[in-house]
């Protein structure tokens, strides 16, 4: 299994693009499969720092899907920095250990105006796809 789409031709150029920051390679691969299978284009980053670098290179993406605990740059700080440049960026958070107050402190730290959803691992693929589907078009409206 590689970083490309599982089978057939790649997603169309106008497909919504998802930036995925996840330090667990097996989880990242599965999420990439899941999203690509649903017709999204996926940008994979092994941690927050890499995600920030992808964004800095000017890559276009419509939604950030990120873990919280990651080496080098944690999810919370990644969201804050991306939102500083793009306040309406939609964000979906996946974490193994949710903050005690749920998404409230995340929303506060993130800043910006875009929607933010919190998922606790293990992730239910259908719920994740549903959330991504609802938020991916947000910044295009």
């Amino acid at each position: 299994m590689t970083g490309s789409a599982p089978s057939g031709p790649g997603p169309p150029d106008d497909a919504p693009r998802i930036l995925v920051a996840e330090d667990e390679p097996l989880a990242a691969m599965a999420i990439e499969d899941l999203l690509a299978g649903a017709g999204y284009a996926v940008l994979l980053a092994a941690d927050g720092q890499e995600a920030l670098e992808i964004a800095a290179r000017g890559a276009r993406f419509d939604l950030l899907l990120t873990d919280l605990r990651m080496p080098r740059l944690a999810g919370r700080e990644l969201i804050r920095r991306l939102r500083a440049a793009r306040p309406d960026l939609p964000v979906v958070v996946m974490t193994g250990y949710a903050p005690p107050d749920g998404a409230a402190s995340l929303l506060r730290d993130a800043g910006g105006t875009g929607p933010l959803l919190l998922f606790t691992k293990p992730i239910e693929p259908e719920q994740l796809l549903d959330a991504v589907g609802r938020l991916a078009g947000w910044s295009r409206r």
């Binding site: 599965a30 499969d33 899941l34 299978g37 605990r69 193994g96 293990p122 693929p125």
Partner: peptide, 30 residues
């Protein structure tokens, strides 16, 4: 508990995602 939750959630998450993908592929006949 926090440590256990974090340590367990990673492999359980990977299992759930891979099993979910495999089931979806089977269902789709691909």
């Amino acid at each position: 508990c926090a440590g256990v939750a974090h340590e367990m959630s990673q492999p359980v998450n990977v299992i759930a995602l891979w099993a979910g993908n495999a089931r979806a592929a089977l269902a789709a006949g691909r």
